[in-house]
């Protein structure tokens, strides 16, 4: 189990990711992204604990756009 951060461009995309994760049994929360990537500006991240490979596969299959997938 790893702590995972999925950075989303907008709060709506973060909410879509959170909703997807919760439907699949993950406990996910949305936070304001603490570190802003160069040139990007504001954004939101979804934080959860899980197996990174499975979570990444789930997100990619959903086709919901995200900016960064990071194991903390």
């Amino acid at each position: 189990m790893s702590e995972i951060q999925i950075k989303a461009g907008s709060v709506t995309n973060a909410q879509r990711i959170e909703s997807l994760l919760k439907r699949n049994g993950y406990r996910a929360t949305i936070r304001r992204s603490s570190r802003i990537a160069k040139g990007e500006g504001c954004g939101y991240s979804v934080i959860l604990k899980g197996e990174s490979g499975k979570v990444l596969e789930l997100i990619n299959n959903s086709r919901i756009k995200y900016k960064e997938f990071k194991v903390l």
Partner: peptide, 8 residues
């Protein structure tokens, strides 16, 4: 303003 990608 959209609250997203604010430096763009």
């Amino acid at each position: 303003g959209t609250g997203s990608d604010s430096l763009n």
